[in-house]
């Protein structure tokens, strides 16, 4: 008996008691068509905390299922999760995590430690592995938090088995993230580290990165049609970045058509 453990209450993280399922399904070619995926999410440490930005597209195979998906979600007042991969599993696990953190705090009358929270995320991913191995349900989150003990923002990213890594500057996940990974380093080396940027500066870089990801990855939505979701965590908690603020920045970003990248060879 682990006091305050929510997975125990619902009959195990994958137990019959919960709706979390891990019954092995036989591999099917059609599986991917059923599984809606969220695509590109970004987290960077800026001057006052952590900024998370995510595009809004959710796809199932070649179909765009939804163009207003929310992929940056609060787990509590000082923790954000940005989700990529299987939408069904991610949303379910986010619900699980929210309940799990709160259940612990309410039962034990103390907050779960940040370390405890990021471990719980590992546990949820590891538990999802049997499904992920069947080819569906894999998801990779980035967890951002404001650490009251060290007074700084922190970013954790995960692999498919639940290994947890802490990153010093930035994290990105989802299909578009691989395309832009090097660009983060380029920005850090040629402009300045994200952690020295103001919110607006960091937001602008993230939006440009997202736009590049959208250009290079068909499953990523970018900002042309629907504005991304952006949330920041500071010492005062989570801030939703208003659409106005993003629109102003988007308006200042040079349109890409001017770049004239490639011309067909006549």
């Amino acid at each position: 008996m682990r006091p305050g453990d929510f997975s125990e209450l619902i009959g195990g993280l994958s137990g019959e008691g919960g709706r979390v399922l891990d019954a092995p399904v036989s591999h099917s070619e059609r599986a991917a068509e059923l599984d809606t995926h969220g695509t590109t999410v970004i987290a960077v440490k800026y001057r006052d905390g952590v900024l998370n930005v995510g595009d809004r597209r959710a796809t199932a195979n070649m179909a765009v299922m939804f163009d207003r998906a929310e992929k940056v979600l609060p787990l509590d007042d000082f923790t954000l999760i940005a989700i990529s991969g299987s939408f069904a599993r991610a949303v379910e696990i986010v619900r699980y995590l929210k309940h799990s953190f709160r259940y612990y705090a309410r039962r034990e009358l103390q907050e779960m430690s940040l370390d405890g929270k990021v471990s719980e995320v590992s546990r949820a991913i590891a538990n999802n592995l049997p499904m992920a191995l069947q080819g569906i349900g894999a998801f990779i989150p980035i967890v951002s938090a404001y650490d009251p003990r060290t007074n700084e923002g922190r970013i954790f990213f995960y692999d498919g088995m639940g290994a947890r890594f802490e990153t010093a500057e930035f994290g990105a996940a989802g299909s578009g993230s691989e395309r832009i990974r090097g660009a983060f380093d380029y920005i850090i080396r040629t402009k300045k580290p994200f952690r020295e940027m103001s919110l607006d500066e960091a937001l602008q870089e993230c939006l440009i990165l997202l736009d590049i990801a959208a250009d290079l990855d068909a499953a990523t939505g970018g900002f042309a049609k629907v504005l991304p979701v952006a949330k920041a965590i500071t010492r005062d908690g989570i801030v939703d970045i208003p659409a106005e603020q993003m629109r102003d920045i988007v308006a200042g970003i040079h349109p890409r058509e001017d770049a004239g990248l490639a011309r067909p060879v006549a």
Partner: peptide, 8 residues
């Protein structure tokens, strides 16, 4: 009760 019900 609240958490089981709220989650499920």
């Amino acid at each position: 009760f609240a958490h089981r019900e709220g989650f499920q």
